[in-house]
Design a protein around this nucleic acid. Sequence first.
DNA 1: AAATATTAGTTGCTAACATCAACTAATTGT
DNA 2: ACAATTAGTTGATGTTAGCAACTAATATTT
Lengths: 147, 147
Amino acid sequence: MEKHNLSMQKLRRMMHEVYRVFKKSIEEQQHEGIKISPEQFGLLHAISTKDEEVIQKDMAEMMGKNKSAILRLIDSLEEKELVRRVADVKDRRKNYLMVTKVGYKVLDQYMRVVHELMEEMQQGLTQNDIDTFHKVVNHIKCKAEKL
Amino acid sequence: MEKHNLSMQKLRRMMHEVYRVFKKSIEEQQHEGIKISPEQFGLLHAISTKDEEVIQKDMAEMMGKNKSAILRLIDSLEEKELVRRVADVKDRRKNYLMVTKVGYKVLDQYMRVVHELMEEMQQGLTQNDIDTFHKVVNHIKCKAEKL
DNA sequence: AAATATTAGTTGCTAACATCAACTAATTGT
DNA sequence: ACAATTAGTTGATGTTAGCAACTAATATTT
């Protein structure tokens, strides 16, 4: 009982710390340049990894976020010129999301920082540990989605 | 590289789903009564589990949050009469945080829901899985705290 | 073809959370 | 007694989330 709840809190704490360190590293490694928040980064990255073209609705589903939330995020990314909306010629309701050149550049920088940090923070953990971690995360997510 | 980043995003997604389900269950099981947010719940619970009396600063440290953030949370909990600040007689700067009777009642209700949900979502996972999960979370948190 | 239903995105509003700097009052240290 | 430190507060700013209502575009039904 108490154990389970603590895990969510610990999880939250862990993520908070990771983001804090991440932010600090970004500041240190880039005194200038475009700064984006974790959520913005998450969306930018998600868009960039999709092979086929995606629309806002797709991203909302994929990230499990409310469509307004996605819209706001896209607004903010578009404002920074990291992403562009391109209306579908056949269905004018749909906006395809495209990562700009600058977008890819920022993404690359951020990914490098993420990579370094994760390498560092994972030291001392086995691959099995990490795989189990992902398994648990995925398992709980899927269970939760069904409720 | 991409794998590590995805885990943070997946983690975030998982937590989002868990909170969604949690909220839904609360709504279903309590058509009335005091509603509190995950953060409020987290703080309320944290306060309740400490044997010795704690002050705001303690909670900020313990939860890894900014003191203003804690203050605001306490404000909101105090407003709902779930928590009370009690000034230390010897050091008037310090406020001890006490969970009220109502506070314990709400906490109990919420804990019950949490317990049920976690039981349900953990089905199919072994104790070893869960332990490893906690181990990884704790490991990363500690590593991050040192950076 | 026209009417209705559905879809994708937008808007306005509200709530919650986080952080920083500056500040105040209280206590401790010199 | 004064300076430094501490605990909490305030104001401002930024970010994210969610809901309902709305608009324009498309699909389906009549």
